[in-house]
């Protein structure tokens, strides 16, 4: 069964700029897909449509069988609980420790303390930060901060992880460290859709890659097919 099914989606911003034109895309469960393209090709818009920060102007977007475009604003949280989202700017709370930043997502759901602790430690272990639980984001490097953000995104065990330029602020070496973490998460069964403009990473990872151009799919490379 497919995890994401985008059918005939067009998105026009209020300013009148159309970012996506009649886009079709299917992502199977457990896949790792890169969305690449030049600035303004609509790749970030696609990400925002998937985690329902935006609504499509036309077409349907099914995530795990749910038509996310039809979800009213006040119910968006329901779909957000089923997916993890990672951003270029990490979006961590500076005044919370690493542990608290990750636990934050679970506390909202009212999970028992022990369960929260178990899940948080497990998620931080997976991203290699188990020894930095009590540190604050400002005490960590960029790569480490992004790994905390990834831990927060996966702590609830989502089936889908959407990454919007997660390596955008990182140097090549640190970027690869983050990619290794994401690859491991993918191997554990989480579908990953990553929007990026860093073709070096895409080249090294050898995953399925969708190239967008001016709001349309220009080419859909199968695993290992894409080269710089």
């Amino acid at each position: 069964m497919d995890q994401i099914r985008v059918q005939g989606v067009t998105h026009t911003y209020k300013s009148g700029v159309t970012a996506l034109y009649d886009l079709d895309l299917t992502v199977e469960k457990g896949e790792f897909v890169f969305i690449i393209g030049s600035t303004g090709c609509g790749k970030s818009t696609l990400g925002k449509l998937l985690y329902r920060e935006l609504k499509p102007t036309k077409g349907t977007i099914l995530v795990g069988g749910i038509n996310v475009g039809k979800i009213p604003n006040r119910k968006v949280y329901k779909i957000r609980r089923k997916m993890g989202v990672v951003f270029q700017d990490y979006k961590l709370l500076d005044k919370l420790t690493v542990y608290e930043n990750v636990a934050f997502a679970l506390e909202i759901f009212g999970l028992p303390k022990d369960e929260i602790h178990e899940k948080v430690v497990k998620a931080l272990e997976l991203v290699g930060l188990k020894n930095k639980l009590k540190m604050y984001p400002r005490e960590l490097s960029g790569g480490e901060q992004q790994r905390v953000a990834i831990a927060r995104a996966i702590v609830n065990g989502p089936k889908l992880l959407i990454c919007d330029e997660p390596t955008g602020n990182l140097d090549p070496k640190t970027s690869m460290e983050v990619m290794t973490v994401l690859d491991e998460i993918n191997k554990l069964g989480t579908t990953i859709l990553m929007v990026t403009h860093d073709i070096n990473i895409v080249d090294k990872m050898k995953k399925r890659t969708v190239l967008l151009n001016a709001g349309r799919v220009l080419k859909d490379y199968a695993e290992g097919e894409y080269t710089k």
């Binding site: 985690y51 949280y77 989202v85 997502a105 909202i108 927060r152």
Partner: peptide
């Protein structure tokens, strides 16, 4: 507002 934005992102409902 950043805190509220993040709360929304990690799946907090309006009431949360």
């Amino acid at each position: 507002r950043r805190e509220i934005e993040i709360m929304r992102l990690v799946g907090a409902s309006n009431i949360n």
